[in-house]
Design a protein around this nucleic acid. Sequence first.
DNA 1: TGAAACATAGTTGTCATACGAATTTGATGA
DNA 2: TCATCAAATTCGTATGACAACTATGTTTCA
Lengths: 237, 237
Amino acid sequence: MSALDTALHGLRALIADGELRPGDRLPSEGELCETLGVSRGSLREAIRMLAALGVLETRHGSGSYVSELRAADLIGSLSLTVGLLPMAGVLELTELRRVLEPHAAALAAARIDAATIEELSGVLDEIEASDDFELHSRLDHAFHMTISEVAGNDALTSLIDVLRSRSRAYRIPDAGDAAELKLHSDAGHRAILRGLAAADPVAASAAASAHVAQTEYWVRRYTDTEVRAEDSSAEST
Amino acid sequence: MSALDTALHGLRALIADGELRPGDRLPSEGELCETLGVSRGSLREAIRMLAALGVLETRHGSGSYVSELRAADLIGSLSLTVGLLPMAGVLELTELRRVLEPHAAALAAARIDAATIEELSGVLDEIEASDDFELHSRLDHAFHMTISEVAGNDALTSLIDVLRSRSRAYRIPDAGDAAELKLHSDAGHRAILRGLAAADPVAASAAASAHVAQTEYWVRRYTDTEVRAEDSSAEST
DNA sequence: TGAAACATAGTTGTCATACGAATTTGATGA
DNA sequence: TCATCAAATTCGTATGACAACTATGTTTCA
């Protein structure tokens, strides 16, 4: 077994066996090197790997700590990498959204209170009045994240966040298409909010499902054009 | 910005900008150090982070390569860490399963062929005849993974795999409980298979939902006893 | 007495160098 | 032409040194 594996599994075992619990500080790098029998470089590489996965957090000058090990945090560690997925992968993820977002909407419909409905309505007012892409994107994100937060499952919220972050990054180049998309999108948002306000899980779920389907339609449409573009450029080389 | 961040963002940018594509070999560590202006140690830490997240793969003596960047692979990188989640987190994940597995079953019902149904039926025969925990666990896993594979979305399969891996690790200590669980579990499996064989997405989905709910019931039951045990031990300290 | 400033020890961050281990490549020879 | 071996390339690991930051205890001053 390589030194890196030794360090990685050693650290993981310390947590899995309960010797280190969420929030605990790890022994110093020097101590761990002796304990595990690896050099500081290899140990640090292992620590970085666990940090990338959301298991450890390192503070300069202080030490490394076991994270709270919340499911939402571990899922959130994917956010660094989903942005690298090619378009084909985005469609797979959109299908996941098509299951998860309606579920979140249904749960939210059963739990939402009047104040939050009011807040969401205000967000939609802003969205509909907005022309700026950045602002629109941020408000849209806030709207959907609020809904999944109300649903009450942090892991679900985090997962939806990660999945949405990918589609969110795309900007529709054609101005006419963008306007059409915004029209459909605004209507979809209102439909979801109506379902929530009526405390009707089925209506909210159906509206959320249609909303994601709408997104999927556009992603697919522009994916196709992109693929065509790639093909033609490939032919020219 | 720290040297590690420089290296990390530099590498990520190389991939995001398309200068490095899936399958490509990265420049040697020495070259990258010069390009990015960081030491080899910092660069290697960055490479390890991306490797942990499933973006890069390193081969001793050969070089580091960009992975295929499949959504399923990125999601699969969570498998190293979900095993560290405390019980409370497992319940959050089980709720996700409660949405995803029925969806997979519904999709599978629409696509499955006779040969696969035959194969799954054979697996269930083995499961029902099995007394060994390990064997049972492995076959159970195979049954459910086959179904999500038939569903045709690799990201969905990978996600279900990750989520299931956690609940799978638990062994019911009480023999009577274990026998009762197995009874319900076997019946649940047959119900799912009936839905698939009938090419009935609704039936398959409902059966899968009930099956996960069953799991959730047991996880919750033993979580409660564990929490009580922790509380009492906490009182004694 | 209280608080601010400082000094100190401990810890992580970064770099440089060296050499071992695995792979790849090219030369050599039959 | 193919097999074999040697060299070059590349990653893996270890070590030492110092900078940057944090935490803690001490001193100093109002």
